[in-house]
C-alpha cells in the first residue's frame, strides 16, 4: 500500500502539474480538495478520473463517485487496490 501511495503522489503531481509541490509535501491522509487541502478543483477531479483509467485501467463513469474516492491520496490508493484489473 505504501508503495502504491508513493507512486500515486508522483503520478498525481505530474498529471495535475503541481510543480511547486514535492510529492513528500502532501500527506497521504490530508484532504486534496477544499481550503484545507492542496487546492484542487473540479477539473482536477476529471483529470484524476483519466489518470485512474490510463494508469490502472479503472473506469469511473459517474464523476459524482469521485467525491469520496479522491478525498485523500490514501482513499485513492484503497480504491485502486479494490478495483485494479489484474
Amino acid at each position: 500500500m505504501e508503495q502504491l501511495i508513493n507512486d500515486l503522489k508522483v503520478k498525481i503531481k505530474e498529471a495535475l502539474n503541481l510543480e511547486e509541490l514535492a510529492p513528500q509535501d502532501f500527506d497521504a491522509d490530508a484532504p486534496l480538495f477544499g481550503e484545507e487541502g492542496i487546492g484542487l478543483d473540479s477539473i482536477d477531479v476529471l483529470e484524476l478520473i483519466v489518470l485512474l483509467e490510463r494508469e490502472y485501467g479503472i473506469r469511473l463513469s459517474n464523476p459524482k463517485e469521485g467525491k469520496a474516492i479522491f478525498k485523500t491520496v490514501r482513499t485513492i490508493a484503497e480504491y485502486i487496490k479494490e478495483n485494479e484489473k489484474k
Binding site: L16, N17, I43, D44, L46, E47, V50, R54
Partner: peptide, 12 residues
C-alpha cells in the same frame, strides 16, 4: 497509440 485518454485540463 497508447489509447484514447482525452485530457480535460488540456482541452480547456
Amino acid at each position: 497509440a497508447d489509447g484514447f485518454f482525452p485530457s480535460p485540463s488540456v482541452f480547456i
